[in-house]
Design a protein around this nucleic acid. Structure first.
Length: 850
DNA sequence: CCGAGGACTTAGCACCTACGTT
DNA sequence: AACGTAGGTGCTAAGTCCTCGG
């Protein structure tokens, strides 16, 4: 294959794809699928990959949802040269084994084995051959696969009617949005003249529902039907808060060793860097470079003397020190000062932190404009360190009701624009200069708007639970499809489902090189016979995903197949799969299904499953919490949620290791005592002669020194205490001499220890017997084991972030139900903010199930 | 009719603070 | 009381998904 070598691989590949001559078999249904978006154009084969004709294909063909298959049939078949393979050997094999049964992907996690009832549903599509029908198919499949009634029933409260109604409307689907829009427009108009009305209504609602704020927003208690394209009827707020203007501190930077006077604007930017000195950012060459480019340019603009040309000559340490001092000062502030700051903050929240949505008071999330600074891109972001400019009101657009008062822009400024778009949830938006991306001010996580979409998210995941078995079966079958495209898609689905990978959209060159499922490249996957796969790549936030697992044989085969060929680094593993196509397919299997739903589903499912397995019904609250956290961690590991290891971690681990050693030391002593008491046992019980692992002489010596030091301290403390007592009682205090006397005992013991160490003869305390010693040995073993587990626990936890899964992936209703069932106070599990965010989920019964 | 970019969720890190420890 | 630490929260970057608009 020819190609322009210098263009980025991915791009090249894509181009090739487009140019490639189309082959025949598109024909199949090509004609008709004109309306299916998919139908458009396949991405022809770039490098031809071959697939052996699995006989299996045919047979399975008939039972699996065909829709897709047919529709995509066009995608070029690669049957051409088939032969190749070692694949042949694999033959048909196991396609039908329910996934679940098969191997557990990563050692941990996985779970998911139950097949849920709806398995076969997906087949509903079957009959609908061909193209064209896409929309209809969707409807059909969704309605039949998800018997709305059944499922909704379990949800109680919320929306049964809503969704059921929707799905049954099928035919109208398309027109809905339009209607909605129209009506919303109308409404908006009405609103203008009916502001007062709205207010009245609000009052009524309050009274009716509950009079306190708490329940005013309890949307989950209402069954009201909603249209989700319209997000609000009325919206008013106070705009956004801008950070105060820069106040120069006058601290100089040194250039070439000499202090330089900087214009305030320049000083500000220098300070951004100064504040970061000695952090990883400031040490990062890309960061430095980007910073310096912007900084020197700015300095030049302000005619800084001398001209700043070399980063190496810049010295920001004075500024750094100044900031350190400022921090200290802040710590030393009086209570009143601190209180004043707090009050100020409070006032801001009052002003900007709340808004009115449909007359209800709601919290605003990020009402503070992002202050200027240096862009802190993660991983190897090419733009990390670039100057992020101050945002002016002139760049900010506000969104609110037509009739709502327009917040005043800061003195001497005006807003960029005011809009009244009730289909958007944002209150304000602006464009950021570094990556040219759009930023928004949204409502807080605890708001009804966010709550509703959270709820919807989990409901979709529960929907998936019902049909996941069928979907799995289908993609397992597709793993052997003749069409490369379908094979790739099925393989990707497998990875997404089993390994909780993200979809993996394409990324630009101005971003860090990270990947997800669809964007995996050859170098990220290695195979090891017979069916081991290693994945190693940087995912979102440049977090490394590194796991080794057994995979299904066919998956193994497929990946080998994809990798074969001019498998060069940089080539995409799934070269003809794009997330949009994948999602389109998923949508057809279940309404609302996209790649990310698998993560939500698998996370929540795993959590519930683990929780159920781990919770000791009769345990203490602490034990239950431990189980909860373990289940949580299971999920975090599944989703690969990581965090930086805390700086004290190594030290803490060392301490634990030492603790274990100390226990081992005790064991050693006991064993020696036993042998001293009963030398005969040397032969009979060889384990008593065996040295403890990991106990070196040096360490023992040191340990004993420490032990003695502690003893001495104890003695001294005792002596001091005694003296205090005597003082109170007006008795004569003990003398230093007496203290020395007491310490002599320790000295003696120390000598003993030294002797024991040499001879190995350890008489033990009074009344020591072999039996007693053995009992103690057992206890020590237990303690060691426990400490070890704690250590492992801690070690694993050091890199695992539990928060993300708790906040985003685990259906809070599982937790709420669990708390009820096991009588654990909710606040042990959810912080205040989480309780607030999840208030919609707190009303479930103890037997609620995900 | 496809890709750029809009809108919204998910993510880890940097603080800050409340708390337990010494 | 000072200290250190873990947990909680705020911040904003980085994803996903899908809709526009050229």
């Amino acid at each position: 294959m020819s190609d322009s070598e210098d263009m980025p691989l991915a791009a090249r590949k894509r181009q090739q794809a487009d140019n490639a001559p189309t082959t025949d078999d598109d024909n199949i249904d090509s004609g008709s699928d004109s309306d299916t978006p998919l139908g458009k154009r396949r991405r022809p084969a770039v490098r031809k990959k071959v697939i052996e004709d699995d006989d299996v294909v045919q047979s399975s063909d008939s039972e699996v949802p065909l829709v897709k298959r047919v529709r995509t049939a066009e995608r070029k078949s690669y049957k051409e040269d088939s032969d190749d393979d070692g694949d042949a050997s694999y033959k048909s094999s196991d396609s039908d084994t329910p996934l679940a049964a098969k191997k557990a992907p990563s050692a941990k996690t996985n779970g998911t084995s139950k097949s849920s009832p709806s398995t076969s549903k997906t087949n509903g599509n079957k009959g609908t051959s061909g193209k064209k029908v896409a929309p209809k198919i969707k409807e059909e499949s969704s309605s039949d696969s998800d018997a709305p009634l059944a499922k909704k029933a379990s949800t109680k409260k919320d929306t049964p009617s809503k969704s059921a109604a929707k799905s049954s409307k099928s035919t109208k689907v398309k027109s809905e949005p339009i209607e909605a829009k129209l009506s919303s427009k109308k409404r908006a108009k009405d609103d203008t003249d009916s502001k007062s009305k709205v207010k009245k209504v609000k009052k009524e609602e309050e009274e009716e529902e509950e009079d306190d704020d708490e329940n005013e927003n309890a949307w989950w208690l209402n069954n009201t039907e909603q249209d989700d394209t319209v997000k609000w009827k009325t919206l008013s707020h106070n705009g956004v808060y801008f950070p105060p203007p820069y106040v120069p501190h006058g601290v100089k930077m040194l250039y070439d060793g000499k202090p330089v006077t900087l214009a305030p604007e320049v000083e500000e930017v220098a300070s951004f860097f100064g504040a970061l000195l000695y952090t990883e950012h400031a040490e990062n060459p890309t960061f430095q470079e980007n910073f310096f480019k912007d900084f020197s340019k700015l300095a030049k603009k302000h005619k800084t003397v001398p001209e700043i040309k070399s980063f190496a000559k810049c010295d920001f340490t004075l500024m750094y020190e100044y900031f350190q001092q400022e921090k200290e000062k802040k710590k030393l502030m009086t209570k009143e000062q601190k209180q004043a700051l707090k009050d100020e903050k409070q006032a801001l929240e009052e002003m900007y932190g709340t808004c009115y949505l449909d007359g209800r008071k709601e919290k605003v999330g990020n009402f503070r404009m992002e202050p200027p600074g240096l862009f802190r891109g993660r991983g190897k972001h090419p733009k990390t360190g670039c100057l992020k400019l101050r945002v002016l009101p002139e760049q900010v657009t506000l969104n609110l009701s037509k009739d709502a008062p327009i917040p005043k822009a800061p003195e001497g400024h005006k807003w960029q624009k005011i809009v009244h778009d009730d289909t958007k949830t944002w209150l304000a938006t602006w464009k950021e200069n570094v990556n040219d991306s759009t930023k928004y001010v949204f409502l807080a996580a605890g708001s009804s708007l966010k709550g509703q979409s959270d709820f919807k998210k989990f409901e979709t995941a529960r929907e998936l639970k019902k049909c996941v078995a069928g979907i799995r079966k289908a993609y397992m079958a597709d793993l052997k499809d003749k069409k490369m495209f379908i094979r790739q898609r099925a393989t990707a689905m497998y990875l997404i489902d089993r390994l909780a990978l993200r979809a993996g959209n394409e990324k630009g060159e101005d971003e860090a090189d990270t990947v997800g499922c669809c964007s995996l490249r050859f170098e990220h996957v290695t195979l090891e016979k017979p069916n081991i796969m290693h994945l190693d790549f940087l995912g979102k936030d440049s977090i490394r995903f590194q796991k080794t697992m057994e995979v299904d044989d066919q998956v193994f085969k497929n990946i080998r197949l994809f990798k074969r060929e001019p498998a060069q680094e940089g080539d995409e593993l799934f070269d003809r799969l794009k997330t949009s196509e994948l999602n389109k397919h998923l949508q057809s299997l279940m309404k609302g299904l996209t790649a990310k739903v698998f993560r939500t589903y698998n996370a929540s499912f795993t959590f519930q499953d683990q929780l159920q397995k781990l919770t000791p019904a009769k345990g203490t609250v602490a034990e239950k919490l431990l189980a909860y956290n373990r289940a949580n961690r299971e999920v975090a590991v599944l989703c690969n949620h990581q965090r930086a290891v805390s700086k004290g971690h190594a030290l803490q681990m060392d301490k634990i290791v030492d603790k274990i050693r100390a226990l081992k030391y005790q064991k050693m002593k006991l064993k020696q005592t036993i042998l001293t008491l009963e030398p005969k046992l040397k032969k009979k019980r060889p384990e008593f002669t065996e040295p403890e692992s990991d106990l070196e002489d040096d360490w023992i010596g040191e340990h004993e020194v420490q032990l003695m030091a502690k003893e001495r301290e104890k003695v001294k403390a005792k002596w001091e205490k005694e003296n205090e007592k005597r003082k109170e009682n007006k008795e004569k205090p003990m003398t230093e001499k007496e203290l020395k006397e007491m310490l002599k005992e320790v000295d003696a013991r120390e000598k003993e220890l030294a002797k024991e160490r040499k001879s190995g003869v350890v008489p033990g305390g009074k009344g020591a017997t072999v039996e007693k010693c053995e009992a103690q040995l057992l206890k020590l073993d237990e303690r060691i084991a426990a400490t070890r587990t704690a250590m492992v626990d801690k070690e694993e936890n050091k890199q695992t972030a539990l928060g993300t899964s708790k906040i985003n992936y685990i259906d809070p209703r599982i937790s709420a139900a669990w708390c009820q069932k096991y009588d654990v106070p909710l606040e042990k599990i959810f912080t205040k903010t989480l309780r607030d965010k999840f208030k919609w989920a707190m009303t479930v019964d103890a037997d609620w199930e995900f």
